[in-house]
Write a protein that binds this DNA or RNA. Structure first.
Lengths: 244, 244
DNA sequence: TTAATTTGGTGCAAATATGCGGAATTGATT
DNA sequence: AATCAATTCCGCATATTTGCACCAAATTAA
């Protein structure tokens, strides 16, 4: 997952409870005792999802919500005291956001978080891969630094040619779906350049060789294109599943 | 087609040129002299594809791009002056977007628009059948993942050839009605392809073999075509269940 | 019932897709 | 001009898919 979540709640117990539950699901969490503290951190370094208690010292959760919404479309989940805020909630247009009424089940909140993030991924499309602030994206033991355009495999730097770099980056960014040859030609080589259909295969070929020792594998979708997947134990140097 | 396209370019000639080319292909087009005008219209009423010139009065195309991206994943094609923006482009991560350098061939742009829209449909899927958040469609114990183009039967992956995949997807998407052979030929094989009428039967035959253990069954509508139904003892209305 | 038509199954050959090694080309740098 | 790296192109071996012929079985009509 590797998603970053900010949590603002003045109750230490609730904050830590949430953190532990979310971190158990491999989310990274940072807690804040006030919404204002969260807001400041957010403006410096955004996250993937925000959980806001309504009742907090300083500005309340709804204020923070509006402030964040001025610049960002990040998913926000509101925590409200049982009934007192219920009507308020009803009267608000929370848009794509969600809310939970206390007391709530941490398990349910976690699954809510998951579904919200999943929906967000659908909306933003290819950004199933969140790029970190330093411009890093990764898959298996491959890490790509988009700023320096360098790649490492298991910590060791390994060289990529420009086309290989572009292709691998594109595959990693779209890890959740199969990519057709025409799309690759379109995106990597550009539409106007009229090249053989097989050039994509060529680059895939070379890339496969270079990542042959890694935990990633470029699988073939027969009659369609390719997809980056984890190399499972049985894979080895074995052929792939080609389901179309 | 009936897709709506917004075009922002301060050059009337280019705008009208594009409009005429695109409208000739049955797209609906609305032109805007500035990106800001387009942005305002878009926020009121989104469209299916956006074409943005980079150099425009007011905010430039990249600004508009980012603004639209805050709320939408609509395909965007950028138009850039030949060399001046080239380096800029390189430095940017245009992500899922496309760009054309001026001067460009309207014909190529049109086919670009078509391929982008087609791909968009492929990815998001356009089935009327309920599709889960993951892009999954299912029938009985068959699940098809339209993103990865994988199919599973009772949880186990099972391989499908391109034609089989297309056919099964079509059958599942139209589970509620019988589908004629000619419709199958049109939708799966395409209008142009000149093949025997019986090729659909071939693929149906192979598909039947592969799903013979599943809870689904392709029933024959005698003298007409096929229909996907549940395999059960009582469904003799459509045809006899002598399978398995 | 028989005859005509439609559908299903087997097998095969043609068409197509893919992977791979290596040669040719391009482009940048000495 | 020579060199080197990157990319593209070529050709072949292999694997897979697909269309079609042929016949058997099923269905309908008479």
């Amino acid at each position: 997952m590797d998603k970053l979540i900010y949590i603002a709640d003045d109750d230490d117990n609730i904050r830590n409870l949430l953190k532990s539950f979310l971190e158990r699901e491999n989310f990274r969490c940072i807690g804040f005792p006030t919404g204002d503290a969260l807001l400041e951190q957010y403006s410096n370094s955004p996250c993937d999802l925000v959980i806001l208690d309504v009742m907090m010292p300083g500005h309340d959760g709804f204020y923070i919500l509006r402030e964040i919404r001025k610049t960002s479309n990040v998913p926000i989940i509101m925590l409200t005291a049982k009934d007192s805020d219920a009507d308020y909630i009803q009267g608000l247009d929370l848009g794509s956001d969600d809310y939970f009424t206390k007391p709530f089940s941490p398990v349910k909140l976690v699954s809510k978080v998951k579904s919200v993030l999943k929906r967000q991924e659908e909306i933003t499309g290819k950004t199933s891969v969140k790029e970190t602030d330093d411009g890093l994206i990764s898959f298996a033991d491959i890490v790509i630094n988009r700023k320096t355009k360098e790649a490492t495999l298991g910590g060791e730097p390994f060289p990529l040619t420009p086309n290989e770099y572009a292709l691998l980056t594109y595959l990693i960014s779209n890890r959740d779906r199969a990519i057709s040859r025409t799309e690759l030609l379109d995106k990597i080589w550009g539409y106007e350049t009229q090249v053989e259909t097989r050039v994509a295969d060529d680059t895939v070929k070379r890339l496969r060789k270079k990542i042959s020792h890694s935990g990633a594998r470029i699988s073939t979708i027969w009659g369609y294109g390719f997809r980056l997947v984890m190399r499972s134990a049985e894979d080895g140097a074995e052929g792939d599943d080609s389901e179309d």
